[in-house]
């Protein structure tokens, strides 16, 4: 952090301006932002990648779940990484892509939302949050073109409407609202197929958690980069629910119960179809 001579707060601190933390950092110390660092030209490098994230909506909210695996080529880089983050009291981000950059972006996004809350004295609207995240992903395009892409999934509880909403992104920062359910990451094709069959309107929160766990099971079944249920190590998927109660991580006991039930039901019936 640079300080003006004499320890005085530098002019950027006292400048009247936006309530965006990112804009302030860009003006004051851009090297702290992931996309402002020059990269040497060259080929892509091996870095840990996060994999599958799913979101499932239910009546009055939305559930986001992610597996715990990070891979580096054919190696499992980390088996208990958290890839679903609460970003404020009513929203959460799940990340797929280069883990290091994604986690840095999430931290920046968390500070961005809290900073806005403190300066403005009010919460940002859900669409405002989704758009701020889009602009962060957009500014990461240079890194994405070198293979360090980040594709988040954003979900939150809309205080105005009283419903959960899901937003997906592409590497260029395009932000699209999704309905009912969605998934990102390498296992998302299989997860989405699974959710098409198991999701139905009018689910409650527990039902949505079940659908998410089934989808992660199906993703891990066919995608080597997605971590399956790890009963021996007792590593469970990260699951957060977003509704009028705010962002609440489901407890290990609760998730363990659901995962164990799903695994038991799939015994002798690996596809999970009706018997």
């Amino acid at each position: 952090m640079t300080a003006a001579p004499g320890g005085r707060l530098p002019p950027a601190y006292l400048a009247a301006g936006s309530s965006s933390f990112t804009d302030f950092v860009a003006a004051h110390d851009p090297s702290l932002l992931p996309h402002r660092r020059p990269l040497p030209p060259g080929t892509s490098l091996d870095a840990p990648h996060g994999t599958t994230i799913v979101t499932v909506s239910f009546d009055g909210g939305v559930v986001m779940a992610g597996d715990r695996r990070a891979t580096m080529g054919n190696i499992i880089a980390n088996r208990d990484m958290e890839k679903v983050f609460a970003t404020d009291e009513y929203s959460a981000v799940g990340i797929a892509g280069t883990a290091g950059i994604a986690i840095e972006l999430v931290r920046l996004f968390q500070v961005e939302l809290e900073h806005y809350e403190k300066i403005e004295g009010t919460l940002m609207s859900l669409e405002g949050k989704a758009n701020r995240l889009a602009s962060m992903i957009r500014s990461n395009l240079g890194l994405a073109m070198q293979g360090l892409s980040v594709v988040p999934l954003f979900a939150g509880y809309d205080l105005q409407r009283g419903t959960g909403r899901i937003f997906s992104y592409d590497v260029t920062g395009g932000c699209y609202e999704e309905h009912d359910h969605h998934g990102v990451g390498s296992g998302s094709l299989f997860a989405r197929g699974s959710m098409k069959k198991t999701w139905r309107p009018g689910l409650d929160r527990d039902g949505a958690v079940r659908v998410a766990v089934e989808a992660l099971y199906d993703a891990a079944d066919d995608d080597s980069a997605t971590g399956g249920p790890d009963l021996s190590r007792r590593i469970w998927p990260t699951i957060v629910s977003l509704d009028a109660d705010g962002a609440v991580f489901r407890s290990d006991e609760e998730v363990a119960g659901v995962v164990t039930a799903v695994v038991a039901e799939r015994e002798g019936n690996p596809g999970g179809g009706p018997r």
């Binding site: 952090m1 006292l14 933390f21 809290e114 900073h115 403190k118 300066i119």
Partner: peptide, 13 residues
Amino acid sequence: VAGVRYADLRGYS
């Protein structure tokens, strides 16, 4: 506002 910026930047870095 300067104080919030100072604190958030310090906490972030």
